[in-house]
């Protein structure tokens, strides 16, 4: 009886906790940042006007304006006035290792470990199911993410996240997939850092290849172990850097 009351009260605490305001402008900022980082929007390109952006994303022009001014403050876009004016994606914008290092320093070891645990649980589960469900086309797609076509930091990071997303796509669990997308957003630019290390880059190709091989062999247990190694290597690199 008392046991039940205790477990119920824990749930109630969550029910009555204050609601955060939606932060619609922040979501618009995130979307645009993500679009630039993944190459959907490119440096120098003109962005839609406040009104166009608002209409496209289904937010009010005030929210769009707020988002654009926040992007401007971060240096992601520049705005010029006059007849050929407008907002443009900044020429030199790239997620920087400096920003990523700041993000890493702001975290505690505990937080990095906890994030790593979550990341590992989700990706390992996806890999296990993916080994049962992958077809030849999907395997071919997975193998395109072993090594990037260009040797840039951003391409390495993209390959890193796309490879794991492809595992989730092959596994076909909507819940795990959404969780992975959210986790990668939480990790932010952190995953950029290990790829500044030449040795890590090459090691990661080997580890991704091992995962793809296990999935091709339809070996769930091996796919799980090799995926765990891949994620652990990334988190371990970050912990190592953090302790310096």
């Amino acid at each position: 009886m008392t046991q039940q009351a205790a477990s119920a009260s824990r749930g109630l605490a969550a029910v009555f906790s204050p609601l955060r305001s939606a932060g619609l402008a922040d979501q618009v900022v995130e979307r645009i940042e993500q679009a630039v980082e993944t190459g959907l929007l490119v440096s120098g390109q003109r962005l839609p006007s406040e009104v166009e952006l608002a209409a496209a994303l289904g937010v009010s022009p005030v929210t769009a304006r707020e988002a654009l001014s926040s992007l401007r403050a971060r240096g992601l876009i520049t705005t010029t006035r006059g007849r050929n004016g407008g907002s443009f994606v900044a020429e030199d914008f790239l997620p920087s290792t400096k920003g990523a290092l700041e993000q890493l320093r702001a975290l505690t070891r505990l937080q990095i470990n906890d994030l790593g645990l979550h990341y590992s649980i989700i990706t390992v589960a996806c890999a296990g199911i993916a080994a049962r469900r992958a077809d030849a086309t999907e395997l071919a797609i997975l193998r395109t993410y072993l090594r990037p076509a260009q040797d840039t930091l951003l391409s390495w990071r993209l390959v890193d996240s796309e490879f794991l997303l492809e595992l989730a796509a092959i596994a076909r669990s909507a819940r795990l997939g959404r969780e992975l997308v959210r986790l990668q957003a939480d990790l932010g630019t952190l995953t950029l850092l290990p790829y500044t290390d030449e040795a890590f880059r090459e090691a990661s190709v080997g580890m991704r290849t091992a995962v793809a091989d296990a999935i091709e062999a339809r070996d769930s247990a091996l796919a799980e172990t090799t995926t765990k190694e891949l994620v652990h290597a990334l988190i371990h690199w970050l912990l190592d850097e953090h302790s310096r």
């Binding site: 959907l40 929007l41 490119v42 390109q45 839609p48 496209a56 994303l57 289904g58």
Partner: peptide, 17 residues
């Protein structure tokens, strides 16, 4: 009736996408 993938319409690489 939520609009989907709207930013792609401003992208030069939407075709590839």
């Amino acid at each position: 009736l939520e609009r989907v993938d709207a930013l792609a319409n401003f992208s030069p690489s939407s075709m590839e996408r």
